[in-house]
C-alpha cells in the first residue's frame, strides 16, 4: 500500500524518528515512519515534504531517499535556524508532523535516451539523491550519467561513502571538487563549473539537472550554456520560504509562479528572466 502523509494536505501526519544519522558537522539524516502504520511513502524524485516540529514551526525539506525503496521516509537536513535546529536536537523515538509529498519532480522520463548531467553543490546533493537512485535503477534507459559535485571543503562533502560507491561503478562518472583543502585531500580543488567544462557528455543533447545554492546554480547554468547545453534542457530546483506548500497562501510566489506548486523543479527557460532578480 502506498501512503501519503495525510488526506488533508494541510494536516500534518505524525511520523516517528526511527534513526538519526550525523552526516556533517551541521547536517543530519532522519529516517521516519508513520506512527499509524501504512506502506511505502510514494514520491517522485525532486519532491519535498513539510516537516513540522510541534510548537516550533514547519519547514520544507526535500526527500533524500530512494523512491523505489519501501523502507522509511528519508530527509537530509542542514541546521541553519529555528526549525532545522530543533530537528537536529531531536532523537530516535521523537515524533514530528509530516505533510506531503509536494511539488514538481525532476523530468526523468523526458531525459530518457539522453546523457544526464547532475550538477550539484553542498547540501544540494540531498534533493538530488532520489533522482540518482532512479537513474541507476533504470540505467539502460539513459546515455552517459554524470554527477558533478562541489563542496566548500573536503569535510563538507555530503554522502561521501555513497559517492565513492557510485564512483567505483563502470556505468557512471562521478567528479568531486572542493573550493579549498589542505594537502591531505587527494581530490580536485577548484570551482564546480570547471568540472562542467571538462566533463565528457554530448552538450547538444544532454539533460542537465542542477541543485545547490542559488549562486552556484547561476554559475553552473552559465557553464552549461558555454558548453552548448540549451536552456530547455536545464532544470533547477529552487528554494523559497513556504507556509502552506499547496498554492494557497502566496508565500512562495514569484512572478506568475509558486515554488511550492509549479516548482521546486523548474525548466530553466521558464524562469530565466527572473532568475537573477531572485538573487539575494
Amino acid at each position: 500500500m502506498s501512503v501519503t502523509a495525510a488526506a488533508d494536505p494541510m494536516l500534518p501526519e505524525p511520523f516517528g524518528i526511527l534513526r538519526k544519522r550525523r552526516e556533517l558537522s551541521d547536517t543530519f539524516t532522519l529516517e521516519l515512519s508513520p506512527l499509524h502504520g501504512g506502506g511505502t511513502f510514494a514520491f517522485r524524485p525532486g519532491q519535498f515534504n513539510m516537516l513540522y516540529v510541534f510548537g516550533v514551526g514547519e519547514i520544507p525539506i526535500s526527500i533524500s531517499g530512494d523512491p523505489e525503496d519501501d523502507g522509511p521516509l528519508v530527509h537530509t537536513i542542514r541546521a541553519v535556524g529555528t526549525v532545522s535546529g530543533a530537528l537536529r536536537d531531536m532523537e530516535a523515538g521523537d515524533v514530528i508532523g509530516v505533510r506531503g509529498p509536494f511539488g514538481s519532480a525532476w523530468p526523468v522520463e523526458e531525459a530518457e535516451g539522453r546523457d544526464v548531467v547532475l550538477v550539484t553543490g553542498g547540501v544540494g546533493l540531498a534533493p538530488m539523491r532520489p533522482v540518482i537512485h532512479h537513474l541507476l535503477a533504470h540505467r539502460q534507459r539513459y546515455g552517459k550519467l554524470l554527477i558533478l559535485y562541489g563542496a566548500r571543503t573536503p569535510e563538507d562533502v555530503l554522502f561521501r561513502k555513497q559517492l565513492e560507491q557510485w564512483r567505483s561503478r563502470f556505468d557512471m562518472f562521478v567528479d568531486v571538487t572542493v573550493d579549498r583543502a589542505t594537502g591531505k585531500w587527494r581530490g580536485r580543488v577548484g570551482v564546480v563549473t570547471k568540472l562542467i567544462a571538462r566533463a565528457g557528455f554530448d552538450p547538444h543533447d544532454a539533460a542537465a539537472f542542477v541543485c545547490g545554492p542559488e549562486v552556484m546554480m547561476r554559475f553552473s547554468v552559465q557553464a552549461l550554456n558555454e558548453r552548448g547545453v540549451a536552456d530547455e534542457r536545464i532544470h533547477l530546483s529552487m528554494e523559497r520560504n513556504m507556509k502552506c506548500a499547496v498554492g494557497f497562501c502566496g508565500h512562495c510566489q514569484f512572478g506568475g509562479q509558486f515554488v511550492c506548486k509549479d516548482g521546486p523543479v523548474f525548466r530553466f527557460d521558464a524562469i530565466r528572466d527572473i532568475f537573477s532578480v531572485w538573487e539575494v
Binding site: G122, R152, D156, D179, V191, T193, V215, M216
Partner: peptide, 15 residues
C-alpha cells in the same frame, strides 16, 4: 573569475 567565485563562499549558509 574562479577565485572571485570562491570568494562568494557559495556553499555557506546565507546567514
Amino acid at each position: 573569475a574562479a577565485a572571485r567565485m570562491r570568494l562568494l563562499d557559495m556553499y555557506d549558509s546565507p546567514k
